[in-house]
Design a protein around this nucleic acid. Sequence first.
DNA 1: GTGGTTCTTGGAACGTGTCTAATCTTGATC
DNA 2: GATCAAGATTAGACACGTTCCAAGAACCAC
Lengths: 157, 157
Amino acid sequence: MAHSLRAADEVEPDLLSRLRQRGWRLSSQRRVIAEVLVGEHVHLSAEEVHARAGQHLPELSRATVYNTLNELVAMGEVIEVSVTNGAKRYDPNAHRIHHHVVCRNCQAIRDVEPPPTTVLPPPEAVAGYAVTETEVIYRGLCPDCATDRPEGSVPGS
Amino acid sequence: MAHSLRAADEVEPDLLSRLRQRGWRLSSQRRVIAEVLVGEHVHLSAEEVHARAGQHLPELSRATVYNTLNELVAMGEVIEVSVTNGAKRYDPNAHRIHHHVVCRNCQAIRDVEPPPTTVLPPPEAVAGYAVTETEVIYRGLCPDCATDRPEGSVPGS
DNA sequence: GTGGTTCTTGGAACGTGTCTAATCTTGATC
DNA sequence: GATCAAGATTAGACACGTTCCAAGAACCAC
């Protein structure tokens, strides 16, 4: 399938200028990585970001992808999500509080808008720890994997 | 320091018989690994389990540690905890609902008894997923790291 | 005690992520 | 538009955590 990325100037217009204000040099590599990540609003691994961005910038190195992702995480523009198996995944939806649901079969991640009744009051202290962040992960089977397919098989995308 | 492990028969007497009922062959390796893990009630990494069990069984291989831990997880006797950086950790406290709090500096994990007011109603379905598990992780600084130590340093244990 | 099934072992191999030194680019300045 | 220094990118080596494999050893039902 052909990924029709939006033009750079259209992608989250605030993001690129925010980054620039923080002294970020806007190289073509960083621009493409941000486009891939923010433009698709899915939860890609670093390797997937590398593959997709590489379609637009074949010379792109893995080191640059990792560097850029780590910088975006450090700046709070992207959230790192660990799903127990395999690589970290990167969530561009960093500015809205939300939870995640992970398929235990195919590892697909979706954002979950927390219903008001399930919102945890952010505790300031837990077991003596100064808590700054609460992460909620639901685990189960996604709609595709929940249908009667043999366990372990990944439904075709 | 000398770890004074409890004798095998004292360690979670139910656990070993439960495992046996499921057809688990009770080798000395598996016994020692279960003792180390369940007997100390902390959150060890596979490498730490290997090191501690190796004090009692010097020939123990890493492959066996990983095999055994994965089996215990599959049987629901142990919970895998991902802390974003580094190795998975293994929580023997699998039969009581609880959350975890992780120090973002030294990665120390503690169990958290969820106060009744913060218990999430386990949703049956989220975003179309059939949810079977809810995981809550608090992140922050542990008491040791929260005192005015330079960021990145790990207080002596 | 015997035998077959299962477990363990050491080492190779893999996936993810970081580091390094050399080279190239960006953007401020003229 | 040209210059230049600071910073970014690159390829590849490396580190770490984990899994795979084939050969040998141990467990336990008989």
